[in-house]
Simulated scan of single mutants.
Amino acid sequence: MQSAKLTKRERQVAGLVAQGLSNKQIAAESVISPRTAHGHVEHVLTELGFNSSAQIAVWVIDESRQETS
C-alpha cells in the first residue's frame, strides 16, 4: 500500500469507511453534511489511488498495523 497525506478529517472518514459506515452514517458521526462526507470519501479514494471502499478498509487496517509495530 502507498503512504498518503490525508488530512485529519480524511483519516477519520477513512476509519469510518473501514467500519462499514455509509456516507449518510459518516456524515451523522462526523457532524457534516452527507455531500461533504461523499466529497471526503471521493478525495480519499483519489488520493490513495483506489476504486472502492473495501480498498480503503484494507489501507486503514494496514496503517494501524504499521503504527503498532
Results as ranks from 00 to 15, higher is better:
residue 67 E to V: 12
residue 54 A to F: 04
residue 58 V to K: 06
residue 15 G to M: 09
residue 43 H to D: 13
residue 52 S to H: 06
residue 51 N to W: 03
residue 28 A to M: 08
residue 48 L to A: 08
residue 9 R to L: 10
residue 68 T to V: 13
residue 39 G to F: 04
residue 22 S to P: 07
residue 47 E to D: 14
residue 58 V to M: 03
residue 65 R to W: 09
residue 60 V to T: 08
residue 34 P to F: 07
residue 46 T to G: 05
residue 68 T to I: 11
residue 43 H to T: 08
residue 14 A to N: 03
residue 22 S to V: 08
residue 53 S to L: 04
residue 63 E to N: 13
residue 66 Q to K: 15
residue 62 D to Q: 13
residue 36 T to M: 11
residue 4 A to G: 02
residue 60 V to S: 10
residue 27 A to L: 07
residue 17 V to Q: 00
residue 24 K to H: 03
residue 50 F to V: 08
residue 12 Q to T: 15
residue 66 Q to C: 04
residue 17 V to N: 00
residue 13 V to C: 11
residue 8 K to R: 15
residue 32 I to Q: 04
residue 19 Q to A: 15
residue 8 K to S: 12
residue 25 Q to M: 11
residue 39 G to W: 09
residue 17 V to G: 00
residue 21 L to D: 09
residue 62 D to L: 06
residue 40 H to A: 02
residue 36 T to E: 09
residue 41 V to K: 00
residue 61 I to H: 06
residue 33 S to L: 02
residue 65 R to E: 12
residue 58 V to P: 00
residue 48 L to Q: 03
residue 51 N to M: 09
residue 66 Q to L: 04
residue 45 L to C: 04
residue 7 T to K: 06
residue 58 V to R: 05
residue 11 R to V: 08
residue 35 R to C: 01
residue 65 R to M: 11
residue 25 Q to G: 10
residue 7 T to A: 04
residue 39 G to R: 15
residue 12 Q to E: 15
residue 68 T to C: 08
residue 43 H to W: 05
residue 64 S to N: 14
residue 64 S to F: 07
residue 52 S to I: 01
residue 53 S to A: 13
residue 31 V to D: 14
residue 49 G to Q: 07
residue 61 I to R: 12
residue 29 E to I: 01
residue 66 Q to E: 13
residue 28 A to S: 13
residue 13 V to Q: 00
residue 44 V to W: 00
residue 9 R to H: 10
residue 10 E to M: 09
residue 33 S to Y: 01
residue 3 S to K: 04
residue 10 E to I: 00
residue 53 S to G: 10
residue 24 K to C: 04
residue 65 R to S: 10
residue 42 E to A: 03
residue 7 T to D: 06
residue 24 K to G: 01
residue 8 K to L: 14
residue 56 I to T: 12
residue 58 V to I: 13
residue 49 G to W: 02
residue 7 T to R: 05
residue 30 S to Y: 05
residue 36 T to P: 00
residue 37 A to W: 10
residue 8 K to N: 10
residue 46 T to F: 09
residue 57 A to W: 00
residue 24 K to S: 07
residue 28 A to Q: 14
residue 49 G to L: 03
residue 27 A to E: 03
residue 54 A to N: 11
residue 2 Q to C: 00
residue 46 T to K: 14
residue 1 M to F: 00
residue 13 V to A: 08
residue 54 A to S: 11
residue 17 V to A: 00
residue 3 S to C: 02
residue 52 S to N: 06
residue 25 Q to I: 05
residue 31 V to Q: 13
residue 62 D to F: 02
residue 22 S to F: 03
residue 14 A to F: 00
residue 29 E to G: 03
residue 10 E to H: 03
residue 15 G to S: 14
residue 62 D to R: 12
residue 19 Q to W: 02
residue 6 L to C: 07
residue 17 V to P: 00
residue 25 Q to E: 15
residue 36 T to V: 09
residue 30 S to T: 11
residue 62 D to P: 01
residue 67 E to P: 05
residue 15 G to I: 14
residue 29 E to Q: 12
residue 60 V to F: 02
residue 48 L to G: 04
residue 60 V to L: 06
residue 29 E to V: 11
residue 20 G to F: 06
residue 67 E to K: 15
residue 3 S to N: 05
residue 12 Q to N: 13
residue 41 V to L: 02
residue 40 H to C: 03
residue 33 S to A: 13
residue 11 R to H: 12
residue 24 K to L: 03
residue 57 A to S: 15
residue 12 Q to P: 01
